[in-house]
């Protein structure tokens, strides 16, 4: 059973940066030479449309998969989830310095998040290609995952006492339904790749509060049959605009290519070792900024700017627990100078 191969998928950078391409190629070659691995290269995951051969290929990868992309791991995981490529989060030890582990959230506090639906029993290991420059670091991590995957195999067989029934065996050998075979390497093929810009919801944080659907006036968000929030019309989103991410109280909305790491899916505070004095030095608060960004896009579309109130009344009227910044900012404003 230990002979089962682990699939490694390398998602290319959007640009043609030679250093990044070389890292992708070096990794691909090294993985091809490793008999424990099946390797494929796809264009940038985020840009893949739902019917791109890269997406179709990914949907049909059975079992555990390692995905390397130039995105934060959270962004990788939830971009895949939105595309219907689902799995449990595999533990990755190789992380970038600015991607601090999340504070431990108590189970109680997490209970109200939506979570992903229909997650099959396999693991997706999301690795950020930004977190190292030496291919060997990635290969070491992949090898570690290979051995971890093999251990899990043994554990599972133990759990069913080495005597799986036929259903269990079928599920185990083939956890994802397999349709027609799809080409394994689909980079640079006839499918032209257009750069896209849209939000990705992290359902491990989303509480279905609907602030985003109220706020966005471009019809990006919708709800599914179970009334769960959904990024319905991805390409209605306005390129460069991250405003809904700022209004999300749970930091659950990721724009994987935004320049601010927290918006792009980094965990924790980016400047964790230093205090951020931006508020003191006059930074507008997130709501103001979000409203300004939205107004710019509305005006570009020939519509009227709506200011800060539209779609944000719910949050303002809600008796949310105040934080220290609220006090600070109100303190500044109430001075009436």
């Amino acid at each position: 059973m230990a002979g089962k191969k682990l699939t490694v998928v390398i998602s290319q950078h959007q640009g043609k940066n030679p250093t990044k391409r070389k890292l992708e190629e070096d990794l691909a070659v090294a993985c091809m030479l490793n008999p424990a691995l099946d390797v494929s290269i796809v264009p940038n995951l985020y840009d893949l449309s739902h019917d791109h051969t890269g997406t179709l290929f990914l949907k049909h990868v059975p079992g555990n998969v390692v995905v390397l992309a130039w995105l934060y791991p959270r962004a990788i995981h939830w971009v895949l989830d939105r595309a219907g490529i689902k799995g449990k989060e595999g533990t990755v030890l190789l992380k970038s310095e600015d991607d601090e582990p999340e504070d431990d959230v108590e189970d109680g506090a997490k209970a109200e998040v939506l979570g992903a639906l229909q997650v099959p029993d396999r693991r997706i290991y999301s690795i950020d290609l930004k977190c190292a420059t030496d291919p060997q670091q990635f290969l070491n991590e992949i090898n570690r995952i290979v051995s971890e995957s093999n251990e899990r195999t043994v554990d599972l067989m133990d759990w069913i006492q080495g005597a799986p029934n036929s259903d269990q065996l079928a599920r185990y050998l083939n956890p994802q339904p397999v349709a027609e075979p799809v080409a394994a390497s689909v980079a640079d093929d006839e499918n032209t790749i257009r750069r896209r810009w849209y939000p990705v919801i992290d359902y491990s944080r989303c509480t279905n509060c609907m602030e985003c659907i109220d706020f966005c006036l471009f019809g990006v968000y919708g709800v599914d049959a179970l009334d769960r929030i959904l990024v319905e019309t991805q390409d209605n989103c306005k390129k460069g605009c991250p405003a809904c991410s700022r209004v999300c109280p749970a930091n659950a909305i990721v724009f994987p290519h935004h320049k601010t790491p927290e918006i792009a899916g980094a965990n924790g505070e980016v400047t964790s070792l230093k205090i951020d004095l931006s508020k003191l030095f006059g930074a507008p608060d997130a709501m103001e900024l979000a409203a300004r960004e939205r107004d710019i896009e509305l005006v570009r579309d020939g519509r009227d700017a709506v200011g800060i109130t539209a779609g944000m009344t719910k949050r303002q009227s809600k008796s949310k627990e105040r934080d220290q910044l609220d006090d600070l900012l109100d303190g500044l404003d109430s001075l009436d100078l």
Partner: peptide
């Protein structure tokens, strides 16, 4: 007012700077 015009980094802090 409040337009971002630059940034500062020090031993203790990092901040954007605003008009």
């Amino acid at each position: 007012y409040q337009q971002e015009i630059g940034e500062v980094e020090s031993s203790k802090a990092i901040s954007s700077l605003y008009a």
